[in-house]
């Protein structure tokens, strides 16, 4: 079966006053229908940029260049997202691929009622009249577990709690039954109990609708709970990709091991907003990335004569397990 989404050799470059920044390079991965793929990595490793590149929501051409290939199994057959004219892309956004964000407060327009904001998405993709769209918005609010949905539809964002807002965002994302939902740290800003409720909701929706999810997070506890497969990103590249269980049981990239070591107990959820405890050292400045392995300066396993010379490629170590490390064989034993 061919994948729902197939990203190949994706690269993103930003140009600014101070020069060019390569935010992403050589990123390849795929997502199957109904699957959940987690993307983890430290801050500014390129997780959000990957998501925005798929949605084509990055700034336009001179300021930002996106290259590579992104194929998507649309309702009317396969499409190549990066080649799609903007008019057609508008229909894909929210229609076939939906996205929700970290800050449900700032992600909702403060001056419009929740119901109206959801109805807008319904209207954009399903057509029909305003009243019908509003009715559907209330159904959606109900679906995502907002009590008293009809009344809540007439609330403004600031009148809802953080969890409710994120539910409203999810309702908006579901407006036209997308096949893929990209969730960029949807629970980071919420407290633990609410976080668990949102994860439950996503799992339930996935079971009911066969939605595929790309779940971006810092929280490895969340990864263990929700993801079928996990992608580890570091400094603009994918460094390890594996089924979640084997990644957590036998990580091969030293960076992944560092991430795991710094989580005391997997099932213990991190406090809301808490970042992954740091691995010694810093992510390299994207403008001056080492030409060789980008993790080498921080790596306990680094061997200057190997790791400091060439940048390793992605290697397949098991059926669905890929890693970018010259020394994975030694690490594996």
């Amino acid at each position: 079966m061919s994948a729902l989404l197939d990203v190949e050799d994706l690269a993103v470059r930003f140009r600014s006053d101070s020069g060019e920044v390569t935010a992403l390079e050589g990123v390849s991965f795929s997502v199957a229908a109904g699957e959940t793929l987690a993307i983890v990595g430290e801050s500014s490793s390129g997780k959000s940029v990957s998501a925005l590149a798929i949605m084509r929501l990055l700034p336009p051409a001179p300021a930002c260049r996106v290259t590579g290939r992104i194929r998507f199994q649309g309702r009317d057959g396969p499409i190549s997202l990066l080649d799609l004219p903007e008019r057609a892309m508008v229909a894909v956004r929210g229609g076939e691929i939906a996205m929700i964000f970290q800050e449900p407060m700032t992600s909702l327009n403060p001056v419009h009622m929740i119901g109206r904001q959801i109805a807008e998405a319904v209207l954009a993709h399903e057509g029909g009249g305003k009243t019908a769209a509003l009715r559907r918005a209330i159904e959606l609010l109900d679906l995502v577990g907002i009590p008293d949905a009809a009344r809540r539809a007439e609330s403004y964002p600031h009148q809802l709690s953080g969890g409710m807002r994120q539910r409203a965002m999810i309702a908006m994302a579901l407006a036209s039954r997308p096949k893929l939902l990209i969730a960029d740290e949807p629970t980071t800003a919420l407290d633990v109990t609410v976080q668990a409720q949102i994860l439950d909701l996503l799992r339930r929706l996935q079971a009911e609708t066969g939605l595929a999810i790309i779940f971006i997070t810092h929280n490895l506890g969340v990864v263990a709970e929700i993801a079928d497969r996990t992608l580890v990103m570091y400094s603009g590249q994918v460094v390890e990709e594996a089924p979640t269980a084997s990644l957590l049981a036998a990580p091969l990239m030293p960076y992944t091991r560092g991430l795991l070591n710094s989580v005391p107990r997997l099932e213990a959820a991190l406090r809301p907003g808490q970042r992954l405890p740091a691995i010694a050292g810093n992510v390299p400045d994207p403008r001056h990335r080492p030409a060789a392995c980008t993790f080498q300066p921080r790596c306990d396993w680094a061997q200057p004569d190997i790791c400091g010379v060439t940048r390793p490629g992605m290697e397949r170590v098991a059926e669905a397990h890929l890693v970018r490390c010259a020394r994975w064989r030694e690490i594996a034993v």
Partner: peptide
């Protein structure tokens, strides 16, 4: 950005 993400023109 949300408005763009939900496919408004």
């Amino acid at each position: 950005r949300t408005a763009r993400a939900k496919g408004l023109r």
